[in-house]
Design a protein around this nucleic acid. Structure first.
Lengths: 331, 331
DNA sequence: AAAGCTTCTGTGAACGTGCACAGTAGCGCC
DNA sequence: GGCGCTACTGTGCACGTTCACAGAAGCTTT
């Protein structure tokens, strides 16, 4: 049993291919009589347009490729991805477009992505958490429009993006500590080649100025274990810390474990602030005071930018959305 | 600047389309001389095959669609998804195939999936956590091969699957409690229309037999809050519980909170066992004794089954992989 | 009544590929 | 020398769609 083609529909409706095609593609100039006949024929035959044939002539694929740059299994922990995936699928589906996923973990992966995109197999590219200095970003320039969810460090002006105002978030948490009268405020940052790593620290420094000494800053890699390690290090360096701003909830969970091991009470001895407001924040004891990022809105804006570019907008401006302080028990 | 076609490559190499096509598709009968000439021409022109044109004639798309059935934002919590996505992308990429994502949350979504698949836009379907009695599973029968990651309740013989041996996992945890001399062992299950909900309870009942009374069983919906609620309920009904097997780590985290609120010590007064060995298990205090599922292997087997079917295997057998007890501090 | 506009329709060509087929050349064998 | 075999190559057609164009029919304007 072969699948019905536009020919079959046209025959069943007693019109020509052209008329059916016009109806399908929303052209005006289709008579009411033809319209109903065709619509009936479509539902009778169960016709579905053949995208391959269509894209062969339109040079469009009706799909967007999402490129996941995290090298290893980090995706595991990050609600950011799943939210963005869902939002993207939903928004694309409204336009009858589909989302293709690709990995860009190693050299081979990146080659494949570039070949795929250059080969014209996608109408747009959606970058996720691309690292600073990733060379393949430049290779993408010549192809279809690309945007990033979160800024691409060093390529802010090349790749449009939507992102949370990470720096604002850093300020919000630090200001909260200051308002509470904390005197020795430390920070555990993320990796310094990611926007979250850099900008959350900038916010911290904005508020503390010269008081943000190197001694009070330690670096993690987003993992729980690295948070624990960094906290231990900070306590050894500066035992009289009374607050610590940790650049992610997961690392903050690690920091809590280190504080518990060192016999410090939270928040009485040391206040702890996280970042992300992920599900982790409710799992720790005590629950984390943290910074909420508008993940869904960021995802939505990212996709909106991409669709605008696909629709022919020559240029779009980056979108930065405000974060929000969520107060729980850890600070 | 137009993209080079197979024509351009043929011209540059001084051969005909047919020969280039043969080389591309791994046919034998290409002379060494032609081979090197074509390979040079390909890299010189930067040629990439046009998939649309190819699938128009081969009736294959080179893509698999992954259907996410969770209605809401559950994906958030579940490492299962991200692992499966990664494994699937990787395995498909090896065959130069791509992964398309679709949602099947509501009626409209499911219609779209069925249209997409029926329209011949995918060579295979990969179902994720499809619920019991989901009608659209039957609608998929007439299309390309479909498999499921995890059994589809009530459709086990229709849709091939790979899954962890959830029932074994239930037995392992319950037996561990028994060996430890626990006398009043309770269970918090998942939703009873999911394999994890049903089969983990079956394992529990396998071991306890008549001792698994209704009074000792409460139901959750995988969320942390539902775990907390269920635990509170159990304590009210049967205060002398000395062990509880919770069907997911996240719910177990909720149960721990309820136990803490009730002043019970873990594991001294009450032993707690989780399921999944997700990142949550290391976040709780104390860290959870739990059941590890071979997620990556399950994902791998699922994709393997699908590829076998796509390659023409008429029938494949379901694959069930063993779970493993991971002992930490909560039991 | 001719001309021009609007609304609607049908038709041929083109998109880039794989596949079936025909065909060529070289070689060994009776 | 004719035959069959192997190794290789080129060509025409089909896949299902969109798009540009030509043209018909009905109306209004000149």
């Amino acid at each position: 049993m072969k699948r019905p083609t536009i020919h079959d529909v046209a025959a069943a409706a007693g019109v020509s291919r052209g008329t059916v095609s016009r109806l399908l593609n929303g052209d005006k100039y289709v008579s009411p009589a033809a319209r109903v006949a065709i619509e009936r024929a479509i539902s009778e035959t169960g016709y579905v347009v053949n995208r391959a044939a269509r894209s062969l002539v339109t040079q469009r694929t009706g799909s967007v490729v999402m490129v996941l740059s995290e090298p290893h299994e980090k995706l595991f922990e990050d609600p950011n991805y799943s939210t963005t995936i869902r939002v993207a699928i939903r928004m694309l589906a409204e336009r009858d477009m589909s989302l293709v996923m690709m990995l860009a973990g190693d050299e081979g992966d990146r080659d494949r992505v570039v070949r795929y995109v250059r080969g014209g197999h996608a109408d747009g590219v959606l970058l996720m958490s691309t690292h600073a200095g990733d060379p393949f970003v430049d290779a993408l320039q010549s192809g279809p429009p690309a945007v990033s969810c979160g800024a691409v460090i060093g390529r802010e002006s090349l790749i449009p993006y939507a992102a949370a105002d990470e720096r604002l978030g850093g300020r919000q948490m630090t200001e909260y500590f200051v308002r509470q009268g904390r005197r020795r405020i430390a920070m555990i940052t993320g990796p310094m080649d990611t926007p979250g790593g850099i900008q959350r620290l900038e916010g911290f420094a904005d508020v503390l100025g010269r008081k943000a000494s190197k001694k009070l800053i330690a670096h993690g890699d987003w993992t729980q274990a690295s948070g624990e390690r960094a906290m231990t290090e900070l306590l050894a360096r500066t035992p009289d810390i009374d607050a610590v701003f940790v650049a992610s909830d997961l690392m903050a969970a690690g920091a809590l474990a280190a504080l518990r091991a060192a016999g410090r009470r939270v928040p009485d001895d040391v206040a702890v602030g996280g970042f992300d407001d992920s599900s982790v924040a409710l799992l720790t004891h005590p629950p984390l005071t943290t910074i909420r990022q508008p993940l869904a809105e960021v995802a939505q804006e990212t996709v909106r930018l991409l669709l605008a570019l696909i629709d022919g907008a020559g240029h779009v401006d980056p979108v930065v959305l405000p974060t929000e302080l969520v107060i729980r028990d850890s600070a």
